[in-house]
């Protein structure tokens, strides 16, 4: 047998891209379960349909780019994009909305830039923002949480997705919507707002708080698996809560909401652990990740409280994606034997 001629290292660790992606998929499960519990089967149907479209789009793009299908589909990155986008979409979205979102995410945001690893913007968030700008009505109509209205079943969810013309669902403003409107109209104290609207729960929205806790749990598990480092999510959550604490002012009518409200509302935890940590589009140096995360947190707060959109994770992440290479350039770690460090006389 001829001897192989290979370069060092000859050993390889257990980690693979496929494993990274599968871990991320697995970590979204608790969040999906909670969302399904509170908002019905809408999210689940979203994900199923979205994954199909995503794999189809990925296959199409690979075919057009003359890449081997099996090898590239194996890395499951298209599935991750589909999961992240479909979790962010409102439940009971029509099939065409999901298809447009996924197609723009996979074909435009990912493959037009050269495929996995080359995209400067988070594909899921590009898809989300395209949908939000193009179809604002469908994108801001969230179903009421469990206990505040009739709970649609699995059949209803399928009908809502595939025959949207025949489905007539109930929608309700989310807590972040309510807060946003309250700040704009400057009418109610936070306490009154809480009492007048049944959507508010213990700290934040009914259902939303638990969804956020579930995504936090998934994120912590990923952290434990060393899929990413703590820097970006922690910096983002810290800066968001810091700004919220600064402008809370005890719950007046102009208050931006308590830190806990912001941490457990909307897509905060989902964004912190699943979107901000996207390795391809974020910074790579650890100091850079701190800056990157902190600025995203600040942008989220500003847009949530002062902007026209109730939630802001997608916009903030996309804006900071622009800045990532710049931050990277200025936050290179100090290499061994360079600069000021100890031991150099």
């Amino acid at each position: 047998m001829a001897l192989l001629r290979l370069t060092s290292p000859h050993a390889h660790g257990p980690m693979s891209t496929q494993r990274v992606m599968l871990n991320v998929l697995l970590a979204t499960v608790p969040g999906i379960v909670v969302l399904t519990h509170f908002f019905g089967f809408g999210t689940l149907v979203n994900i199923l349909w979205g994954s199909l479209v995503a794999v189809g789009c990925e296959a199409l793009a690979l075919k057009l780019r003359r890449r081997p299908l099996g090898f590239y589909l194996k890395d499951c990155s298209a599935l991750v994009t589909a999961f992240l986008l479909c979790i962010a979409l409102p439940p009971y979205s029509p099939w065409w909305l999901i298809a447009i979102g996924i197609a723009s995410a996979i074909l435009m945001a990912k493959h037009l830039y050269g495929g996995l690893g080359y995209n400067p913007f988070n594909p899921a968030m590009v898809g989300y923002v395209i949908l939000l700008i193009s179809f604002p009505v469908q994108m801001t109509s969230w179903a009421p949480p469990r206990g505040l209205g009739e709970m649609p079943g699995l059949l209803d969810a399928l009908r809502a997705c595939f025959t949207p013309a025949l489905y007539d669902g109930v929608t309700m403003a989310t807590p972040l919507d309510l807060l946003n409107q309250n700040i704009a109209s400057n009418s109610l104290l936070l306490e009154e707002l809480w009492q007048q609207n049944p959507q508010f729960g213990l700290f934040a929205g009914v259902g939303w708080e638990w969804a956020n806790v579930a995504f936090l749990a998934g994120g912590l598990w990923l952290l434990y698996q060393r899929i990413f480092t703590w820097h970006a999510p922690v910096a983002m959550l810290a800066s968001l809560s810091l700004l919220a604490a600064l402008f809370y002012d005890g719950g007046s009518s102009a208050s931006g909401g308590s830190p806990l409200f912001h941490l457990l509302s909307g897509a905060t935890m989902f964004g912190a652990f699943f979107i901000v940590t996207d390795p391809v589009t974020s910074t790579v140096s650890l100091r850079g990740r701190l800056i990157y995360g902190a600025l995203i947190g600040a942008l989220i707060y500003v847009i949530r409280v002062r902007g026209n959109y109730p939630d802001a994770v997608a916009f903030s992440v996309l804006i900071m994606n622009f800045a990532a290479p710049f931050i990277d350039f200025y936050t290179q770690p100090r290499t061994y034997g360079h600069g000021d460090k100890r031991g150099q006389k």
Binding site: F71, D75, G115, G117, P279
Partner: peptide, 13 residues
């Protein structure tokens, strides 16, 4: 065969 770099940063760590 090598796949695309996803810039996960594990190498930097």
């Amino acid at each position: 065969p090598a796949q695309a770099c996803i810039r996960c940063g594990m190498c930097a760590q």
